[in-house]
Structures are given as structure tokens and as C-alpha cells.
Design a protein around this nucleic acid. Structure first.
Lengths: 198, 198
DNA sequence: CAATTTCCTTACCAATCGGTAAGTCATTTA
DNA sequence: TAAATGACTTACCGATTGGTAAGGAAATTG
């Protein structure tokens, strides 16, 4: 039953870290969810940091492989950008745990020096930038501008995903359901209109 | 010197909470920055939670008063939206501490039941929505769609502000400086093009 | 001048943190 | 069958957490 326990611990840890952050979640909390002691967790992962590191690695790998799959399908750069962004939105909505963890990682970067989980995602950002720069546009996009554009879309996506509980509390469940259903289309509109192809 | 100490403690706490989050920052850390003991802090604020609550309240008040000031100047709804959003961007860039705390608050909402600091900002969201809905557009905007639109812009802003250290680490200081300088213009372009007024 | 209040300290406290050590029990391997 | 390995447990550990109690020095107030 060893392999199974390990994976269950990873799932539990992902939930806890997403909900309370690295400092807020204790390894005892995580193990308790499976009616285990924290020493069982330490047996499998050695330390809290290593456990967290494995989770970050898993998220980055999963996202990147997800992206690569999407990328091969389309050739037109604008369509490709659109497909990638809506793909990311869908993905993050389905795995909001991961979106939360990455957002926390973004925030904790200031304190926790290097080893950030976002580094894994740099190649992914680079490829998005190169796609954007091949889209014909009257203005010439510097790398900084292309990155800013990419960041605007990524921000729209991740901020929304991470705001789910707050939006639900503020505007009610139905309102959030409506937004969630419509958001992919709104994202597509935002991207297309920015490139004057509406 | 009491009033002064209190304010200095608030500043120090804002920095610590922004950098490490509510759980990650200890009241001893905060007091240490002023060469005080944590008991001095407890004397002024009673408890860690109350201190944090005061910070949230301060941030919300400061943002809202900032917004109200911007709002009176313009009448055309699109121009008003534009002014508000670039105003928020400027503001968040200048007070990235506050942007980080609010983003953390968004994430911790799941765990820490009600009393969220984002509630203070609901009227602000409402007024943004009402502005957007008065902008003429071929599609009719439901409340959910208008809110989605607002959220896209807010996401673009806050995600970028919060990503500063990561972006700097990944792409270098100069690149980030270039992005930061250009981001207001890019935001304006994003908003205008979405409303077909480029 | 006496009393009180404000601001802060040292001295504690129980609870919790991540982690180590040692041992139990079941399964696998030689 | 004996040895070894994997998957846990209980029993600890020192450090740190937020918070309380009591008191001291200085300023404010009567």
C-alpha cells in the first residue's frame, strides 16, 4: 500500500499548501487528513521542504506537458496564443489548487530567495513571448512589450481563478457560476480585440 | 512618542505580512525591526489578529479614498474606466506591500472564513461594474460579463505588480524596468481595444 | 506633591512547530 | 526459515509560536 499512501499524501499536501500556504500548513495537518502521524509523512518525504519541492516540480511538469500538447495543433500564431491561453484558463480552473500554490510562490519569492517553483515555467513564458512577437501588428513589439502583453492575459486568468471564494462570497454562487462559464469567451474577446481581429 | 511607535509598528507589520503572509510573519519579527519586544506590540494592538485587521482596514480605506479622488475628474465612462484602472496600477506599483497583502487575502479567504479584507472593496467593484455597463458596446453586458471584464483588467494589474521579484529574477532588472515603465500604456491599449476605440 | 496612566520591560506559559530515535509489525527476499 | 526491508508507531527533543502577569520608569493629571 506504500505507493498509494505516498500519492494520497501528495494530494493532501497539495490541498493544504494551496489553502494555507507553506508556513500555514503543518505536516501534522497534512498527515491527519489520512489518519496518519506526521512521522509517516516524514518517512516518505524526509522533510517538509522536500515534500513541498516535489509538489512544485509536479505542478510545473504537469503544466508544461499540458501546454506542449496544445501547441502542436495550431499553426496561426494568433490562434495558437488563443488556444494556449484558453487552455491554461481551463486547466487552472480545473486544478485551482495548483493555481493557488503558484500564486503563493509568486508572493513568497521575495522572502524565500531562489529555488522558486516559477523558474520551471520560464521556458513556457519564453515560448509565449515568441508566439506573440510573430503576430502581425502595426506596432513593433519589443520583448518587454510582448512579455507585458502575455502577462496581462496570464494575470486575467490567474487572478480570476484565485478569486473564486471571494467572488462567491461577495456576489453569490450563481453569479460566480455565470462568470466562470463565460470567462473563456471573454478571454478570447480580450485577446482578439487587442490584436484587432474581432 | 506613543503615536509614532504605533505607526512605525504598523509600517513594519505591513512589510512583514506582505513578505511572509499572516502565518509566516511572527509578531516578534515585526517588533524586532524597531528594536522592541513583541510585548510592546501586544500592548498597542492587543493581538496579532487585531493588528492584521487594522492593516486591512487601513489599506481598504486608503484605496477607496484614492479611487474617489480619481473618479470626479472625468465624465465619459470609458475615459473614467481608463483613468481608474491606470490610477490603480500606479497606486499598486507604488504600494506593492498592499497589493501583496490583498493578494494573500484573496488566497487565504478559503481557510480564514469571513472577516476578509476584500469585503471592504466590494463597493469599489460595484462602481467599476456600473461604469463598464454604461460604456456603449454592440454586445449587451450582463452584470456577470461586466464583472468579468473588470476582473480581467484588475487581474492584469495585480498579477503584474505581485510578480515583480519573479520577473526580475527571470528576465533581469533592466527588462523589468522597461516593462514597468510601459505597463500603464499597455493597460490603456488593452482597455481601449477591448471597447473598439483604438 | 501624589496619583494615575502610558509605554515598555523581564519573566513566564502552554501549545505547536519540524525533526530524530527507536521500536513494532507485516511483507519481501535470500 | 532467517534476514532484511518497508511502512508505520510512540516517545521524545529543542525552538518558536501567540499570549499573560507583573512591574518599572516616565510623563500626565488631579
Amino acid at each position: 500500500m506504500g505507493k498509494n499512501t505516498r500519492e494520497q499524501l501528495l494530494e493532501s499536501a497539495r490541498r493544504c499548501f494551496a489553502a494555507k500556504g507553506f508556513y500555514g500548513a503543518s505536516i501534522a495537518d497534512i498527515a491527519d487528513e489520512l489518519d496518519l502521524t506526521k512521522q509517516a509523512l516524514l518517512h516518505h518525504f524526509g522533510s517538509k521542504e522536500k515534500l513541498y519541492g516535489e509538489i512544485l516540480k509536479g505542478i510545473a511538469e504537469s503544466i508544461i506537458s499540458d501546454i506542449i500538447r496544445t501547441r502542436a495543433d495550431v499553426t496561426d500564431p494568433l490562434a495558437q496564443l488563443e488556444a494556449l491561453m484558453t487552455g491554461i484558463l481551463k486547466r487552472q480552473l480545473a486544478h485551482s489548487d495548483e493555481a493557488q500554490i503558484l500564486m503563493r510562490e509568486l508572493l513568497d519569492n521575495r522572502a524565500r530567495a531562489e529555488q522558486a517553483g516559477n523558474w520551471y515555467l520560464k521556458p513556457f513564458l519564453d515560448s509565449l513571448v515568441s508566439i506573440v512577437r510573430t503576430i502581425p501588428l502595426e506596432e513593433d513589439l519589443t520583448e518587454a512589450r510582448a512579455l507585458a502583453l502575455v502577462y496581462q492575459f496570464l494575470g486575467s486568468i490567474n487572478y480570476f481563478v484565485v478569486s473564486e471564494p471571494t467572488l462567491t462570497q461577495m456576489f453569490g454562487k450563481e453569479m460566480h457560476a455565470a462568470m466562470r462559464q463565460d470567462y473563456p469567451e471573454q478571454l478570447r474577446l480580450l485577446i482578439r480585440s487587442r490584436f484587432h481581429r474581432v
